[in-house]
Write a protein that binds this DNA or RNA. Structure first.
Length: 274
DNA sequence: CGGGCGGCCTGGAGGC
DNA sequence: TGCCTCCAGGCCGCCC
């Protein structure tokens, strides 16, 4: 479900409400995730620990605890975090609860179980297998047109797949890759190394613009995305191509097409993307 | 060895 | 109503 704007939206809503709180207990009711969860390790690391910060790296949420440890959380496709009063009704597939002082609890639900959570030390994080290969953050200073040109120089792959490659740049998933390329007027099937510097500059600016705009809108809610307070995103009404196959392009009027690239749906306008 | 593809899961939508 | 197929916002490992 979540790409950078959705994860960042969750991060902000979490940060407002859990920093300074202490985890009193951790209840695990499901351990079968893609990487199996170790309840004992989680409980030992979390119980009695104060939450000192909430950060994001790529599509991972990092809940920093007093001391050296960090709770790492990934929402996968269907993961969701909810902050709620203890004892209130909870969503189906609520697999983990963090009980907080003051009577609230943070609930992690994930029907498809593509998500993951684990505890590691802050020092070990960069070397963790899930983090070592990660590319640059799209809002870091190092994410430049030259960086993209350099990384794309020897690659014949389609620019859409390139943008979705987390080894190149993190946070761009299936929705925002299509949206950024529409904004840039670049056809998703274009080979990266065939993009002129001018067109790459446009792709670069469009990635940032689309992501920033989606963050401001609180993410995209297609079916079930919510922040930790249960609020839906508002970017779905601004989508220009994603999930609009057969509809008219708002820019040129031509009919939006759906194709499949690397096993994922891609949407583009044949009229104004070349 | 870069990168496409199948698989991991559940659930919702749509066809018959 | 049921049963089938297809599809879904991510990621990993296999294998060409």
């Amino acid at each position: 479900m979540p790409e950078l704007p959705e994860v960042e939206t969750v991060r902000r809503s979490l940060e407002r409400r859990i920093v300074g709180r202490t985890v009193t207990d951790c209840i695990v009711r499901e351990t079968r995730f893609r990487t199996p969860l170790d309840p004992a390790a989680l409980q030992v690391a979390l119980r009695g620990r104060r939450i000192v910060g909430v950060e994001r790296r790529s599509k991972y949420l990092l809940i920093a605890l007093a001391g050296e440890d960090v709770l790492v959380l990934h929402l996968g496709m269907s993961g969701r975090l909810d902050l709620a009063r203890r004892g209130t009704a909870f969503l189906p597939h609520t697999h983990v609860q963090l009980e907080l002082d003051g009577g609230d609890e943070l609930r992690f639900s994930d029907p498809r179980r593509f998500g993951m959570l684990f505890v590691t030390s802050r020092a070990a994080l960069p070397a963790h297998p899930r983090f070592t290969g990660l590319g640059i953050e799209p809002f870091d200073r190092g994410f430049t047109v030259d960086y993209l040109l350099d990384r794309g120089r020897s690659s014949r792959r389609p620019v859409k797949n390139f943008l979705m490659d987390a080894r190149v740049v993190v946070g761009v998933g299936n929705i925002y890759a299509s949206e950024a390329l529409h904004r840039a007027r670049v056809r998703p099937s274009t080979s990266v190394r065939r993009l002129s510097p001018q067109r790459m500059r446009c792709v670069h600016a469009s990635v940032r613009a689309v992501l920033a705009s989606a963050v401001r809108a609180g993410g995209t809610t297609l079916q079930d995305f919510r922040d930790t307070d249960g609020h839906a995103g508002r970017f779905q009404v601004r989508l220009r191509v994603y999930d609009r196959a057969g509809e008219a392009c708002h820019r040129c009027g031509r009919t939006i097409r759906r194709i499949v690239q690397a096993g994922r749906s891609t949407f583009y306008c044949p009229g104004c993307q070349h």
